[in-house]
């Protein structure tokens, strides 16, 4: 089980980082969200995986480590605030700058003629 879990954490990290390296704000926000899933799972797993061992006294024979859980709980809420801030900032940037590129300006395309006709930009 641990191997599978670690694989999922690694995959989520990789996906998150790839998207965070994209040039448009929305992709970056999605990437950061994926990355924060991975980080939360990673931190949570530092308390080791346990089945049927909720950290509630009297509910089970043994208890999982409550400390990483408490840390991750607040991290999830703060992560939401961070995502919200990033996405609102992205909207504000688009409103003020006229585009949604992370650098605030659209990159100069090497060949404008070959640009795809699709896309709303």
């Amino acid at each position: 089980m641990e191997g599978l879990y670690a694989f999922c954490v690694g995959l989520l990290t990789a996906c998150g980082i790839f998207l965070a390296l994209r040039g448009r704000t929305f992709s970056v926000v999605i990437g950061l969200t994926l990355l924060s899933y991975a980080v939360n799972l990673f931190l949570f797993a530092s308390g080791r995986l346990k089945l049927n061992a909720a950290a509630v006294l009297g509910e089970s024979e043994q208890y999982s480590d409550p400390l990483p859980q408490a840390l991750v709980l607040t991290a999830i809420v703060i992560g939401f605030a961070m995502t919200a801030f990033a996405v609102i900032l992205a909207m504000r940037a688009r409103a003020d700058l006229g585009n949604d590129h992370v650098d605030g300006t659209l990159p100069v395309q090497p060949s404008d003629a070959s640009q795809k006709s699709g896309g709303s930009q």
Partner: peptide
Amino acid sequence: FSAPDLALTQLSVEVVTVILLILALFFLP
């Protein structure tokens, strides 16, 4: 993996985040 508090938090944050992102997407390309 025995973290009911986290599951509950993640679930409710998930709802709020998706609503937020959909709202944002309305204004973004």
